[in-house]
Design a binder for these strands. Structure first.
Lengths: 159, 159
DNA sequence: ATGATTATGAAACAAACTTGCAAGGCTGGC
DNA sequence: GCCAGCCTTGCAAGTTTGTTTCATAATCAT
């Protein structure tokens, strides 16, 4: 249906993606020089990958502290009930919270992994009350405050 | 020194950042219409925020499966020794691994949180041998395989 | 008040993106 | 082995976007 065509990416595509994942403001002409292709060829490949869902977004990366959210926190969530209905409800709740930057539903001893951005520990405490304690289906959660964001990003190995 | 000037961002800046975090290919003219500013004014604000380190990168977001890395894994790492020297060594090892998409040094019962992308569980098993078992300073690690990437991104609340 | 600093918009300019078109290369059928 | 159809490419023209210039307006500190 709306499934991205599983067109195999060739070496050109991967080289282009490697560049765009570093800096998507790189002019097509420069990309073309690096991968030995003309600018229009580069442009058509980028357009195709966007249409096929290979490239899902083009975004600016912002320093959280600059926007007043200097604290990054990992949260492990354990649910009481794991019926499809209850899991979906949890997903929707996390999706709706702007402070939840990332959310993954995982296997193993916990059910969800969250990455949360907050202005202060007080704000996090308020978030836990609103998002976790208020939800009867959350059995428990564990908090890990990030002291160093050693490596961030969404880069996928293109080699 | 090279510290980003802590210039307070006004409402214009935050509105621009909200747009750029969604789509940084939005023309400056369109941004200007949305925030009630001329294109050059928008352009200068973006430049300033890039220079000040508020905007740290402009990147394309790529679907991991398209590049042959369909499996996302969370890893909790517990070290043996937590001297500054040993922690730095661990950071450098994780930084150097392309499969490690994100790495955070955290407080609490574990020391590091990793987000890892791999082509297969066999590839992950190989990674654990190379990166974890081969390192005598890693006491233990816990693996959580992502079944659903509910919410991904690097968006920071700009409201 | 007043002068310095900074930010702004209009217009001119430069650069990048986009499209049309003809040529080259690969694939499959015969 | 040959040919036809399809796909991708590069070039060139046209369009959009980004960038600089410059004069003016707003802000701030004195």
């Amino acid at each position: 249906m709306s499934e991205p065509s599983a067109s195999t990416l060739d070496a050109f595509d991967r080289a282009i993606l490697a560049i765009l994942q570093e800096d998507n403001t790189t002019p097509q002409r420069v990309i073309g020089e690096k991968v030995n292709l003309s600018a229009p060829a580069v442009q058509r490949r980028i357009r195709r990958m966007e249409k096929d869902g290979v490239i899902t977004a083009n975004v600016a990366v912002v320093e959280p502290a600059a926007l007043g959210h200097p604290i990054t926190i990992f949260v492990e969530i354990e649910l009481v009930s794991e019926t499809a209905k209850d899991i979906d409800a949890a997903k929707r709740a996390f999706l709706a919270a702007p402070e939840v930057q990332q959310c993954y539903y995982v296997t193993g001893e916990v059910d969800f992994m969250l990455v949360v951005l907050v202005p202060s520990m007080a704000a996090y405490e308020a978030l836990t009350r609103r998002l976790f304690f208020a939800d009867a289906n959350i059995r428990k959660f564990r908090t890990f405050v990030a002291m160093d964001r050693v490596k961030t990003g969404l880069t996928v190995p293109a080699g």
